[in-house]
Simulated assay, not measured.
Amino acid sequence: MDLEIAAALKHGNYQEVALLIANLPPDDPWGQLYQAQLHEAQTEWESAESLYRELLRQGHVPKLALEARQGLQRLAQRQQEEQRDQTAQRQVQIARTVAQSGQGGLGVLILEALSPEVKAEVAPAFAHIMRLDLYSARLLLPSRGWRFYRTGAIGELQVYGQELQDSRVPSFWKSLEQVRQVKVHQACYFKTVQDPVQVVVTEAHSSKSPRVLSFKWSEVVQSVTGQLPIFEEVVDLDARGVLQRKEKTQDYAQFRDLHLPSGILRFYDAAYQFNQGVPLAADSSEPGTSWSNWRNLTALWQENLPDVRSWNEFSTFADTIIEQTDTLDRIDAHINLFRRAESYWDQAFHLYSSLAYLK
């Protein structure tokens, strides 16, 4: 029987091999070995590996264990060869993409959220593409919001991103040049709130006087909200009673970007002139607090933009990129918050909003 199965495997008569294996008792370990070898011959790598490993765990006679171990070695060698071939093909594709489109500039690759069920299904493919172990791949795939994954040449990111999408891993990529081209209008105050809406705005890095931006509420495609921490340096006692300086979150600046065809219309509580333009409170004779003023502004948006999509998971995204200072250094935040020390939270928010705008 052994010789018949070996000969059938050697000549690629897989139907005959399957019939011969079926005539063996189901618990025959040699039959299980032949089944593993049949899986291997038919390039069913995962099934073959599973059976080989099971045979080794069962602790059979040395000859059978040796056959199973050699089977695993062959699979490992094939996997290494396959990875080398795929890496070489990917590098050729990257070079071709960059050469054809001139996409050598830097960009970012973003992973999108998956449900736990889908994450379990696509994690092996993600691990294979990015050359990760399965445990790390599962940790990196986000369950909510966006995860910044990598900065690199946009042509390279396009190749990786396309492979991920083909494997059902939701992702997208944008160049930093695209981010730089997004126009930002900083809102000073509403002049009118009825269509056509008029907002007095200033332009980033412009010495020109404020101007009026007009639009209809129906032109707002989506909005982006976020809270940016404001830090202060405090002096505190450590566990040994020694004075030490440390950074502490003093407050949060409130932001909302409205996305229009002409660009981003940016509102934030530190820049909006609540004492100018259309009164936002029912009783405008008394100045409100910063929080009540922002709440009134929010009510205005909710009244006029009830069905507009709002991107509101900035903090989740920020946690994945705030340490990537080389990338954030290349981004102009278009934000003029008073800060005692430089912070990358401003660039992170602008990147988040711009990615939503470009998506």
Score class of each variant (00 low, 15 high):
207 S>M: 13
104 G>N: 11
51 L>S: 06
230 I>P: 00
158 Q>N: 09
135 Y>N: 07
286 E>A: 10
174 K>I: 05
42 Q>C: 13
15 Q>R: 09
178 Q>I: 03
341 A>P: 00
141 L>V: 05
279 P>H: 04
316 T>I: 14
101 S>D: 03
256 R>N: 04
274 F>V: 07
275 N>A: 15
56 L>W: 04
30 W>E: 08
32 Q>N: 02
221 V>D: 06
290 S>T: 13
358 L>W: 11
314 F>C: 09
160 Y>A: 01
20 L>E: 05
172 F>M: 10
207 S>R: 14
136 S>I: 04
134 L>P: 01
206 S>N: 11
263 G>Q: 03
230 I>A: 10
45 W>H: 06
331 I>Q: 03
123 A>C: 08
292 S>V: 07
191 K>M: 07
324 Q>I: 01
70 Q>D: 14
176 L>I: 04
195 D>Y: 04
301 W>V: 05
92 V>N: 03
175 S>N: 03
247 E>I: 11
210 P>F: 06
10 K>Y: 07
154 I>A: 05
120 A>H: 09
178 Q>M: 11
109 L>F: 07
206 S>L: 12
174 K>L: 11
167 S>P: 01
274 F>E: 02
57 R>F: 04
32 Q>K: 14
31 G>L: 01
267 F>S: 05
51 L>G: 02
225 T>K: 05
141 L>F: 09
329 D>T: 06
310 S>Q: 12
133 D>C: 03
220 V>I: 13
245 R>F: 06
342 E>T: 13
99 A>H: 04
275 N>G: 13
305 L>H: 04
322 I>K: 12
94 I>E: 09
120 A>G: 08
246 K>N: 08
186 Q>C: 09
338 F>R: 12
56 L>M: 12
12 G>M: 04
335 I>N: 07
164 L>W: 08
101 S>H: 12
65 A>I: 01
193 V>C: 08
